[in-house]
Nucleic acid binder design. Structure first.
Lengths: 127, 127
DNA sequence: GTCATATATATGTTCATAGCATATATAAGC
DNA sequence: GCTTATATATGCTATGAACATATATATGAC
């Protein structure tokens, strides 16, 4: 989220505004899995379209997948066929699909909040 | 942020999507202070327009104000005149104003990310 | 007079999360 | 053999939200 990557030991001592959207990665992964079952490494690549750029933390992806499985929003099974190390193939459950719809509402609300800020900001600072 | 208010001891065990936007309260308070110096209690009321509804936590407001003062983004002085308990009147500094502009950019980016989600969501689920 | 409420600020505690680091293993390219 | 890409996993720390509680001053009700 932070664009300059200059944090001192991730202490957030710099004033750069992060405004991280907590757990936003979850609905993103759920939506990708609804489109097509996938394993973590593949998701990691696809997540860039949601602003999780270049250096996304793999730990974040894998840990969220395991957590969502524990919650019953996704299911997984090991895939050993093919080349390379074994992959854990995830697919979304119906509970996971329900959650996507709930997130869509939350996200609409959040957009409204952010847009209210920008509107006010522009009223004050633009001309 | 959570609409139903049914958390068990704030353990976030329910599946309600929060998607809280971390520290978003800070640029909101800075913008309000840019408009007009104010004390915490007054800000608390005005913050509802940014989606910090009804039962906003006073601790969050006051702690963020003190933190922002420590960072040099706002300044305060006690006001004893008038009725009622003493108020700490805050005003924004030039560093605080700079930060508003930085946040405006972050917020634009976040809107884009959220809108990408919604666009994809609608492509998949709407008709 | 005292009781509840509104105004105003402050601190304590807990939990989940992001962000960072590191470890492991398989396979392909050179 | 060495490096890199693929693939998953865990450990650690700082932070922030959400909750609770404490304090004090003034006002209106009864």
């Amino acid at each position: 989220m932070c664009s300059h990557g200059k944090h001192d030991h991730h202490k957030h001592t710099c004033e750069c505004p992060g405004g991280r959207m907590e757990r936003f990665i979850q609905p993103c992964m759920l939506l990708l899995l609804y489109e097509k079952p996938a394993h973590g490494y593949r998701l990691m690549e696809k997540l860039s379209q949601f602003g999780y750029e270049d250096n996304i933390d793999p730990g974040m992806v894998y840990r969220n997948l395991r957590k969502m499985e524990k919650e019953g929003w996704v299911e997984s099974e090991w895939k050993t066929e093919g080349t390379g190390p074994a992959k854990r193939l995830y697919k979304i459950t119906s509970e996971g699909e329900d959650l996507i719809h709930a997130w869509a509402i939350t996200i609409q609300n959040n957009i409204k909040r952010l847009q209210h800020f920008l509107k006010k900001y522009r009223e004050i600072f633009e001309n």
